[in-house]
C-alpha cells in the first residue's frame, strides 16, 4: 500500500533497529571471566545504522515515510533520537525485551508490521551482539513478504523492488513485488552524519513507546556467560622489522 502524504505518493517504509551494549566497552571480570554488561553504554547496532541509512535513502529518492521500530526496554527509548536525526520520521519503541529470543522478537515486531501495511521493511542482516541472522527470514515468513537478503543496492519501480545482492563469488540481481523485507550489510552504504538542524529537531520530537507484556519463553538456557580464555603472548616488538619476521614465522608454523 502506498503511502500518501499531502497528495504526493511514496512508499511506506519500516526500519527495524536494534539497541545493543557497546561491545568495545564490555569487560570480563578478572578471575571469573564473567561478562559484565550492566554498566556498558548502549548504542545502535552498526548494521541497524546501515539499515536506517538505506531506508532514508529510499525515502529521499522515491518519496514516502520511514517508521523506525525498536524492541528493547526503557533505556532504549532515547536512542531513537539518533534514528530521527538520520531521517526516520516516526518511531515506536516496544519495551519489555528480556533476552535474546529471535522467535519472540520476530512475532512481536511482525504483529506491528502487519497492522501498518508496509511496502518495504529494512533491517540489518544480523546484529553485532548475538549474530543469529534469523530475523529477516522469520519476519518475512510471518508477514508473508518476499525476502531479499544482503543487498548491495536497491531500486524501486512501481510496486517492484530490484536489488543487487552479494553472494560468495558473484553478484545477483533480484526482483520482487512488494511487500519486501530487505536485509543490509556493512557494504550496502555509509551511514550518514546527521546535520545539526536534524539533530536538534530530533531532540524535540516525541518517541512513542509501548510495553510488551507477554511471556518470554526460553527455548535455550544460558548457563554461563564468560569471556573465552585467550592465551596471548603479549610480545611487543619495538622495531617493526623484527615484529614482521616473527609474525611471518608464526604464520608459517601454524600453516604447517
Amino acid at each position: 500500500m502506498q503511502y500518501i502524504d499531502g497528495g504526493s505518493v511514496g512508499y511506506n517504509i519500516a526500519v527495524l533497529i536494534k539497541v545493543i551494549p557497546d561491545l568495545e566497552q564490555i569487560k570480563a571480570a578478572s578471575g571469573t571471566g564473567q561478562i559484565q554488561i550492566e554498566k556498558v553504554p548502549l548504542r545502535l547496532d552498526i548494521l541497524s545504522e546501515h539499515a536506517i541509512e538505506a531506508a532514508v535513502q529510499l525515502k529521499e529518492k522515491y518519496g514516502g515515510k520511514v517508521t523506525g521500530f525498536i524492541f528493547g526496554n526503557n533505556e532504549s527509548i532515547p536512542l531513537m533520537k539518533k534514528a530521527y536525526a538520520m531521517g526516520v520520521d516516526e518511531g515506536l519503541v516496544i519495551t519489555g525485551y528480556k533476552e535474546n529470543n529471535p522467535t519472540l522478537t520476530a512475532s512481536v515486531i511482525s504483529e506491528k508490521l502487519k497492522s501498518l501495511q508496509f511496502d518495504i521493511i529494512v533491517l540489518g542482516n544480523q546484529s553485532a551482539d548475538t549474530y543469529t541472522g534469523l530475523l529477516p527470514g522469520m519476519i518475512a515468513s510471518k508477514i508473508n513478504a518476499r525476502l531479499i537478503g544482503n543487498v548491495l543496492s536497491i531500486e524501486i519501480e512501481g510496486k517492484e523492488v530490484k536489488a543487487r545482492k552479494s553472494l560468495e563469488k558473484k553478484i545477483e540481481v533480484v526482483k520482487a513485488q512488494m511487500p519486501v523485507v530487505i536485509s543490509v550489510t556493512q557494504e550496502t552504504n555509509q551511514p550518514r552524519l546527521p546535520p545539526v538542524m536534524q539533530i536538534m529537531a530530533a531532540g524535540r520530537k516525541t518517541i512513542q513507546s509501548e510495553e510488551y507484556k507477554g511471556q518470554t519463553p526460553s527455548y535455550t538456557l544460558t548457563k554461563s556467560r564468560v569471556a573465552p580464555k585467550s592465551e596471548r603472548k603479549k610480545q611487543i616488538f619495538e622495531k617493526p622489522e623484527d615484529g614482521i619476521q616473527a609474525v611471518v614465522r608464526v604464520i608459517k608454523e601454524e600453516a604447517r
Binding site: Q190, R192, L193
Partner: peptide, 22 residues
C-alpha cells in the same frame, strides 16, 4: 559541509562517532 550536510572525509566521520561514543 559538516553541520548542514553531514559531509566530511571518512576518517573524520569515524572520529566524530568515536568522540561521541568513547
Amino acid at each position: 559541509l559538516v553541520l548542514n550536510q553531514g559531509k566530511a572525509p571518512k576518517g573524520t566521520l569515524e572520529t566524530y562517532n568515536n568522540m561521541e561514543m568513547y
